[in-house]
Amino acid sequence: MSEGARLAEAGPRVRPPESAQGPVEGPVRTCVGCRARGHRSTLLRVVVADEGDHVAVVDRMRTRPGRGAWLHDDLKCLELAERRRAFTRALRTEALDTSRLRGEVERGGAAGSRS
């Protein structure tokens, strides 16, 4: 039985698996703001600066320990994530100060600058 025939028998609510959309090259992550999927290289990794601070910062090298949330380098995505409280959920922490993160996103180019 072909995959299309099997899905047709399952009913109208079944979506084809994402692998059917074509091969994906490299790691794929989901933006916590807009919930769109994108390549890891196009998203910023956001982490908590230190345990006691509760300050969200960009992990430019993408190597800091702990949980990370992924975000497009776009102010609209940041605002959506703040409004939905996505950072506190994704990072499993209390309320976060995102002012430093907002400053980096407003300056732009944070995704490409790895130091």
Results as ranks from 00 to 15, higher is better:
S2R: 13
E3K: 11
L7T: 01
L7N: 11
A8F: 11
E9F: 12
A10V: 06
A10H: 08
A10P: 00
G11M: 13
R13W: 14
R13L: 12
V14E: 14
R15Y: 11
R15D: 10
R15Q: 09
R15C: 08
R15L: 15
P16Q: 11
P16N: 09
E18C: 06
A20H: 09
Q21I: 00
G22I: 08
G22L: 09
C34V: 06
R35G: 03
T42V: 12
R45Q: 05
V46S: 02
V47A: 07
V47N: 10
A49G: 01
E51T: 09
G52A: 09
D53M: 01
D53N: 06
D53E: 15
H54Y: 08
V55H: 01
V57C: 03
V58C: 07
M61H: 12
R62F: 05
T63Y: 04
T63A: 15
R64W: 00
P65I: 00
G66F: 12
G66H: 14
G68Q: 06
G68W: 12
A69Q: 11
A69K: 10
A69N: 04
W70K: 01
W70T: 04
H72K: 08
H72I: 12
L75W: 05
L78F: 03
A81C: 12
E82Q: 13
E82K: 13
R83P: 00
T88P: 01
R89N: 03
A90S: 15
A95V: 05
A95Q: 08
D97C: 02
S99H: 07
R102S: 09
G103W: 00
E104D: 14
E104P: 02
E104S: 13
E106N: 04
R107W: 03
G108Y: 09
G108H: 04
G108I: 05
A110S: 13
A111Y: 00
G112S: 07
S113Q: 13
R114S: 06
S115A: 13
